[in-house]
C-alpha cells in the first residue's frame, strides 16, 4: 500500500505503524479524579478502548509514520478495497469535531 501523506506525498506503507480505529482520538475525559473508578467512567473507557465498529467499508484509522516524519495520520480507507480516500495529520483532526462523525 501507499499512504498519501499530506506533507510528503505517496509513501510506502512499510514506513508506517498501524494503530487502529481513529476513534482512539476521542479519549474520554475525566475532569473529577473522584470519578476515575466510577461505573460511568469505566463504561466510557471500556467502549473507547475495546469496542469497534470494524466496518466493511470506509474506515478512519490511525497510522504513525515511524520511519518518516514521525507524524500520526488519520487515513480514511475502504477496508474492502484498500482504496484510500483521504489522509490528514492527526493533530489537525484531534480536537476537531471528529467524535461526531465517527460514531
Amino acid at each position: 500500500m501507499q499512504i498519501p501523506h499530506p506533507l510528503l506525498g505517496l509513501r510506502d506503507a512499510s514506513e508506517f505503524v498501524y494503530l487502529g480505529d481513529a476513534s482512539l482520538l476521542n479519549r474520554p475525559s475525566v475532569d473529577d479524579p473522584a470519578e476515575l473508578g466510577s461505573d460511568a467512567t469505566l463504561d466510557a473507557f471500556h467502549e473507547y478502548l475495546h469496542l469497534r465498529h470494524n466496518p466493511a467499508g470506509v474506515h478512519k484509522e490511525l497510522w504513525f509514520h515511524e520511519q518518516g516524519d514521525r507524524s500520526w495520520l488519520v487515513v480514511t480507507r475502504d477496508t474492502t478495497t484498500h482504496e484510500i480516500l483521504d489522509c490528514a495529520l492527526a493533530r489537525d483532526v484531534a480536537g476537531a469535531s471528529f467524535g461526531a462523525e465517527s460514531t
Binding site: L62, W72, L89, A90, R91, A94
Partner: peptide, 8 residues
C-alpha cells in the same frame, strides 16, 4: 500518540 493525537 499522546502528544499528537490526544493533547495536541
Amino acid at each position: 500518540f499522546c502528544r499528537q493525537c490526544l493533547w495536541p
